[in-house]
Design a protein around this nucleic acid. Structure first.
Lengths: 304, 304
DNA sequence: TGGATTGTTTAGAGTGGCTACATGGACGTG
DNA sequence: CACGTCCATGTAGCCACTCTAAACAATCCA
């Protein structure tokens, strides 16, 4: 049972097509196909079956792919170990983030990384994105979800919580509610809202507000981009739910944030990784830096 | 980091010399040496160092070898998984035993194994043997030790307890103590003893008897072979400590066994394995058969 | 039906690990 | 102290394995 072949099977489980695996592993589809065939002959039972013009795993194939993850993890632990012996946390680490988390965390993280450790970042619109799917492509995936809503459970991914960020109600300066210390769901009925795009995690909170207050919120607009939402709020076109630490960056002093009481209103920001990648020393170093930066952000806000 | 090379390092840790590794892996020493060199270059730090005319591992090498075990284990789990899918517990399993355990367990085990599963057994005199060392050569090592005396701890081996066997006092028919239901250490002072060879596990019990009774036991002979000891006891030349389930096989009815009270007098029989080998389906099947046979032996004795 | 996409086959080329043999230290013994 | 032995390591060449390239087959969609 060759490890490389097992790895190929695992990639197939993650990516779903021979061509995708070939692309990801810098091989031709032919090579992948041949190796899978050899693996199947060794196993003595079919691991894949044709489905349309594509290929899918059998139950045996899926089970084997899952155990291939364990192999990859222990192998990654071994290489991490010898990286520690050389204390050599170098290499490239790739990361995707959704915009606000990137703006809040990444500059500080990159400044604090030692030489030889290169962090390649990209951002991806969270609106329609399936965060776990990105773990095939990137070492670290920054994701967010409402607390208690574990949208990435059960896929065998490593999840590292980085921080929880309160979601406040954003108001324009001079708004009637702007001199309150905090707001309750019932205060918010009758206001015009700038909402988020369907499927966006915040939506759940808005529903909770409606439920708690026993009335519907009138949703004037729906946007995905936070800066856009804020500019609407500042312009007096409505109020909106905004994350506390990442709002008002562009136009400070013109947006008032009020905490919500009566319902839990916060999002959790986590790092998602394939378990084997999570073991790499370079990756672990970046994760540590992310956690440090996150707690620093939280600290500096609670100090104010 | 190639798995095969890691495996070679692990073998080196277990066997201590390049030549031994080469012999065990059906390669020439040259091939082993070359691969270790490649591994060292990949690691970027020395993993071995010369010691006399031989070779020994550095700290880094040892650490890496240890993590190589984890890799081997997860790999073995993977192959066991697909053996389960084919429910194909076939192959060869090698086993060493000390004589009495073999006589007690192996015939029944071999009879109950399915076709295609070949169990190759050997016996090894336990007198001078370092049981853990045999795990390099055999898949399963049957070992015994006094309860509470874990002579094989801390080597990263898998230990499966099979049974605990009481050690009784063996007496010739007609001996003055032979009509007692059980014996205490103080009863045994003044008797002539047939002892075991130095270093044999039973010795500890004899010391415990001396300690408890506050007197020395007179040790007439010291033998390693149990059948020899028994024949001396039957001939009236002394009394001896004998394992309850495996004694009297040759000459039934001429040896009387009496349980000891007042000190714990039993040995524990266990199976020792390298953790990766323990995961193989064929090995696990044999272990299951051993446990079943062991509990059957215990049951049939307690029924009498 | 024709083009696009996806997996598989075949033949050929390159790489990497193995064997065989030779070399060079380290130990023990006469 | 020289000799044989034991052990690890170089060197050259061979073989096996896995990759690429290109043709092929099957399916989907327009």
């Amino acid at each position: 049972m060759d490890v490389q072949r097992l790895e190929l099977l695992r990639e197939l489980a993650d990516r779903g097509s021979v061509t995708a695996v070939a692309l990801a592993t810098h091989r031709t589809p032919s090579a992948v196909s041949q190796q899978l065939k050899v693996l199947e002959r060794e196993a003595g039972l079919p691991l894949t079956q044709r489905h349309g013009r594509g290929l899918e795993l059998t139950d045996a194939g899926r089970a084997l792919a899952r155990s291939a993850t364990d192999v990859a993890v222990s192998l990654a632990k071994a290489t991490a170990l010898w990286d520690e012996f050389r204390n050599n946390a170098t290499g490239e680490v790739s990361l995707v983030t959704f915009p606000t988390a990137g703006q809040m965390l990444l500059p500080g993280v990159i400044k604090n990384l030692g030489p030889g450790l290169v962090l390649n970042c990209a951002d991806e619109d969270p609106e329609l994105s399936d965060f776990p799917a990105f773990t095939a492509e990137y070492d670290i995936v920054l994701a967010h979800a409402m607390s208690g809503q574990l949208s990435w459970a059960g896929r065998g991914l490593t999840v590292v919580p980085l921080m929880t960020e309160p979601l406040d109600v954003g108001l324009p300066v001079g708004h009637p509610l702007a001199d309150r210390a905090w707001l309750r769901p019932s205060d918010l009925i009758g206001e015009t809202w700038i909402g988020v795009t369907d499927g966006y995690p915040f939506e759940r909170i808005l529903h909770a507000i409606e439920q708690e207050a026993g009335a519907h919120l009138s949703m004037a607009q729906r946007f995905a981009d936070l800066a856009l939402i804020e500019s609407f709020v500042i312009a007096g076109l409505g109020i909106a739910l905004v994350p506390r630490y990442t709002s008002g960056g562009g136009q400070p002093g013109r947006l008032v944030l009020k905490p919500l009481r009566g319902i839990e209103s916060e999002r959790q920001i986590v790092a998602l990784m394939r378990p084997d990648r999570a073991e790499r020393l370079a990756v672990r170093t970046v994760i540590e830096a992310l956690r440090a930066q996150a707690s620093q952000v939280q600290l500096s806000h609670s100090a104010k």
